[in-house]
Design a protein around this nucleic acid. Sequence first.
DNA 1: CGCACATTTGACGAGAATCAACTGCAGTGG
DNA 2: CCACTGCAGTTGATTCTCGTCAAATGTGCG
Lengths: 252, 252
Amino acid sequence: MSTSLFNDLARPGIDSKVISALFNGFGGKANFSQRESELLSGCLSRHVSCEAGHEFISSANALEHPKFILSGWMGRTKHLADGRRQIIDLYLPGDPTGFGLWIEASAQACYACLTQVRYADASTLTRRVAASPNLYPGLALALQQMEHEIQTRLIDQIMRTGRMLAHERMAHLALELYRRLDRVGLSVGNGFQMPLTQDQIADVLGMSTVHVNRTLQQLRRDRLLRTASGRWEILDMDRLAEMASGVRDTPS
Amino acid sequence: MSTSLFNDLARPGIDSKVISALFNGFGGKANFSQRESELLSGCLSRHVSCEAGHEFISSANALEHPKFILSGWMGRTKHLADGRRQIIDLYLPGDPTGFGLWIEASAQACYACLTQVRYADASTLTRRVAASPNLYPGLALALQQMEHEIQTRLIDQIMRTGRMLAHERMAHLALELYRRLDRVGLSVGNGFQMPLTQDQIADVLGMSTVHVNRTLQQLRRDRLLRTASGRWEILDMDRLAEMASGVRDTPS
DNA sequence: CGCACATTTGACGAGAATCAACTGCAGTGG
DNA sequence: CCACTGCAGTTGATTCTCGTCAAATGTGCG
């Protein structure tokens, strides 16, 4: 990793952590050469802002516009005919988004800004790496690892919505978010900033807003989670993990 | 496509359709060169049988053994601590399986034979294509398209388990299976052979066996589906598609 | 036949959705 | 300053979908 490169890019505060994480292989195990760091650096040098609620519609057969998220949260969403919404997958600061090269003709999903978002466009990076992967082996590897991680997250999401109870889903999600944010240095003690509304959480977990609220209350009563002023704090990592693994407790 | 090559491989009956479909790009849009057809042909020349119930456990960090399914159905499964099971994704004849190159250290999922299965090992094909994608552009493309199709299926699965009602899930699954089997020539009229037990369907859709049974009865009563002797027949494609899209009908 | 297995049925209860109202809070403007 | 607005969160009452348990029926097979 070439420290000098991202020092120019890092802004005071949270950004530097995110940018540093990106230079270290998007949370994977890849190492980048000088050439690769330069390509990445050029890509990250221009930031774009986007307000909460904005949606990037994926047109049929179009090449997606891949991005690196620098701050804020995004989500891939899909709707049913009567308006029910499901958030397929969440994208946090430091995550690459929209890197899937082939978009199916069928109505897929769209990317929505769940909060205000700042991102860097990665179209040229994608194109260069795809054109000559031999020149950018580290980036090519990191992108592949990233694709695999997304698949892992989708599988977890299927477990949550398919077979887990409400409080198990919530515990599982809390742990996933904590681990992902911790990896890019955005955890605060045993907690993290949680910008999502209960409505949005409901759309992630496939349940109603009211039930999200009641489930959170239960986790608070059981002293597993503290949720206050846009911040979640995990009070008992072990018991939360046990809950998320699907052990059916004897009711308290 | 070089017809002469797979004629040697095709066995009487259903197999020839599946093998022909594989030579035509795994249901994607890729075209294979002579060299690629030969590699594929070599890969498909040896068939392995595997009884129902057998599971391929994916060991941590191990390279999966990719396969082409020639007959029978497989599924990727994941379990919770107390035994609840979710079938993440189904693999039908003509589908490539286990092609994900990097398996995470964390307990992922395992591949289970849901029926008796015959398959062809694709390890060498995978290795060669990964080593020199320039020699096998068509295969490389087909594999990438295949990865993308799997992601699309996972997204559909999240929609089903996350936001759809029981009868909508069933309708949606029936249509997916019909389309996939039809693509490889395994549809029979408006129907197809359905080897899964109601238990297995329940684990796919994230519901209980009893409820699967009752939901199927409802679809039969509504003259949308006929299910008899291991065969499903779609009686009204349009209404089933409408149901699967999430339109809430006025109750009959 | 008898066995194993899949499907079907009924009764009951648990988990979650729905609807509607109410609270709390920050911002806004009179 | 305070009323007014908008939005997220909270609560209660009710309904509904679906799971659980247990038993019965059906089906293929050695």
